[in-house]
Design a binder for these strands. Structure first.
Length: 226
DNA sequence: CGATGCCACTTGAACCCGTC
DNA sequence: GACGGGTTCAAGTGGCATCG
């Protein structure tokens, strides 16, 4: 299976985000596919740290990409584009959780629904890929972390973003990022100490990446931002 | 090669807030 | 009010890059 990291061609790999954004704003809409391919993996992992439903994350990723595209001219090139994009994804994810919670509260049969949902075993391509015991253990351990800690852990450790970027993306203070990360590590330490740097977890593989690119670009080509 | 500064991490203490 | 969990702050430590 081809890793996402291998999917960007050599011609665009050297282009930094702001350059790409600049060119998109000048009319080269097709270049947005580079952005999508570049950040699918990262957004997917971060989304997965907030929402436990892969199909929902894909929808939210699409919304985030489209929103980012629609507001591309508002991007000020002050922060990194990735930070800005992740911030949109996090906001959309949190809004989704809020909506879901409200729906859940309104539902008379919420208990039954909950039992039903919690008993559903995901049987996705991703799941099938995560066939080693260690990967499964790592993924489930991370998923078992409280959401606040899981998100910080994914962003800082798995995505290798700086404390400053993490603060910005998640709207936290520096101290909170540090404390949450430390606590997340404590929680994971016993089982997973030697595997926290594993890059293979929660892969957003090529077929899904292609699907995401197609879905977003279909919309993007209809939107005029120039 | 040691001094220095920066960044990140760790830890403890104090405080806040929600729950029982 | 007690308790637990979360947040904030401050101080100390370690790793690393840079400079003289």
């Amino acid at each position: 299976m081809i890793r996402l990291d291998d999917q960007e061609d050599i011609a665009t790999k050297s282009l930094d985000d702001s350059k790409i954004v600049q060119e998109i704003l000048e009319g080269k809409k097709d270049l947005y596919t580079v952005i999508i391919r570049r950040y699918n993996q990262r957004l997917f992992r971060i989304g997965l740290s907030i929402i436990d439903d892969e199909s929902v994350i894909e929808e939210i990723m699409q919304i985030a990409y489209i929103k980012a595209y629609e507001n591309l001219e508002k991007f000020r090139f002050e922060a990194r584009f990735s930070t800005w994009l992740i911030r949109i994804l996090v906001n959309e994810s949190l809004m989704y959780l809020k909506r879901r919670e409200q729906t859940y509260k309104r539902s008379k049969n919420h208990l039954e629904t909950d039992v039903l949902q919690s008993s559903v075993e995901y049987n996705t391509p991703l799941k099938e890929m995560l066939n080693s015991e260690l990967r499964t253990a790592l993924e489930s351990s991370i998923k078992a972390l409280p959401e606040k800690y899981r998100t910080v852990f994914i962003v800082r450790v798995i995505e290798n973003m700086s404390v400053a970027e993490t603060m910005e993306c998640l709207e936290l203070t520096e101290a909170s990022v540090k404390v949450r990360l430390n606590r997340a590590k404590i929680m994971l330490r016993n089982k997973l100490n030697s595997y926290v740097q594993n890059e293979e977890i929660m892969q957003f593989y090529k077929p899904r990446c292609d699907k995401m690119v197609d879905a977003v670009m279909k919309r993007v080509l209809q939107i005029d931002i120039t």
